[in-house]
Design a protein around this nucleic acid. Structure first.
Lengths: 210, 210
DNA sequence: AGTCTAATGTAACAATTGTTACTGCACTCC
DNA sequence: GGAGTGCAGTAACAATTGTTACATTAGACT
């Protein structure tokens, strides 16, 4: 396992820390669609992402969803961080967007490493910073963009994290992520197709040049 | 000055740290409306809020604004934190919502204290956590609420931070914070008045029972 | 081939929000 | 008192987004 950690976190963490992670972390492989974090649950370990994409969603009381951001290799979930450090409840939902490999670190180590390793501290600070920026970018999208531009941004972001210009999602799934209705997404996608931005197939969308 | 720090941060910081803050921090008093942070600027010191309310806004390229959250006594600005630690540009704008007293701490101390003081580390982590939660709550509002409920929440939040049921703002100012138009706010306020939630006067709004 | 089902296309309409334009009111300053 | 200014009220309309309902299509399975 240590090799996989090194490949993705080398240069970032001291060797000693890598060794500790190797000893106390457990390797976990999850399939696409796997629900890693449920809202309202307490979290007992935090994930370091080795490969794959995790999507972080906000869910309101009525079960309505909204995509907050994607996590990739080398990322961790800042909400989990703060839940671990502060023992707060999870405020979010995490779903594997693709098959993913993770290392789960027990939360007891968090505080300890924060004191012990400078690299870990910086990693945690940096994760917080990145997530805060991404949350604010999400706010930008919702507040300042109209649905067509939000959809375009969504498609762009998604091709970026998955490294694939083919998006294997139904219109309904996209609608959930953007918190709108399927009909609206179909309507706007059709427009984007007319503009030459995408090519629509059944069960997938080919992103051409955005 | 140390007394003012102690009054607001006692129990939170070790005595040694309080003493350091006293030595390197500078006291600052700003009037309502003062612009503390401009978007795009680099930040050379971080504020610890002693009294008053600071509002944090997001601004897009067209100059459109959106209120992110309010900061109060005992808070600090997480964006500033991350700017200081990572030397990023400011992504936000900070305006004194009321007259306010602050202690400005030079950023060189940030990293040092993070290593040296556990209480400072926890303060920083906690600030990040709080702001992340607040950013996500802002996302909730924009994504899941309609404008009338957003307005209601805005009024509620504002009375809470200012400890005053009278809100001294024009409709236009509220419209800027919520990123909508004056006419929309006037229209909705009128409805709220009819429902008995508020009483409208010239240049101020009295919040009755929300 | 025929049936079923999920995904998508489309039209018609409703609700919400944004925009423009104009009116009236309160206050200040001559 | 009268002019000027900023603020709020209102109406009419436009644009965007959401909703409902139904048709069509592609692929899976017998």
């Amino acid at each position: 396992m240590i090799q996989e950690i090194k490949n993705n976190y080398k240069g970032l963490f001291e060797d000693e820390l890598l060794e500790e992670i190797n000893q106390v972390g457990t390797f976990k492989e999850v399939p696409e669609g796997f629900e890693l974090i449920k809202p309202g649950s307490y979290i007992k370990s935090m994930p370091l992402i080795i490969s794959g994409v995790i999507k972080i969603l906000r869910e309101d009381n009525d079960g309505d969803e909204l995509l907050l951001y994607f996590l990739e290799k080398g990322d961790t979930c800042a909400m989990t961080l703060s839940c671990c450090l502060g023992l707060h409840k999870s405020e979010i939902k995490a779903i594997a967007e693709t098959n993913a490999k993770l290392i789960m670190v027990p939360i007891e180590k968090m505080e300890e490493w924060t004191t012990k390793y400078k690299s870990w501290r910086n990693f945690v600070f940096d994760s917080y910073h990145k997530r805060l920026i991404e949350a604010i970018e999400t706010i930008d999208s919702i507040a300042f963009l109209k649905m067509d531009d939000r959809l375009l941004k969504y498609l762009k972001d998604k091709t970026k994290v998955t490294q694939d210009t083919i998006i294997n999602n139904t219109h309904q799934e996209i609608a959930y992520d953007l918190h709108t209705s399927r009909v609206v997404i179909s309507r706007l996608l059709k427009k984007l197709e007319q503009n030459g931005n995408v090519k629509l197939n059944r069960n997938n969308i080919e992103v051409l040049h955005i």
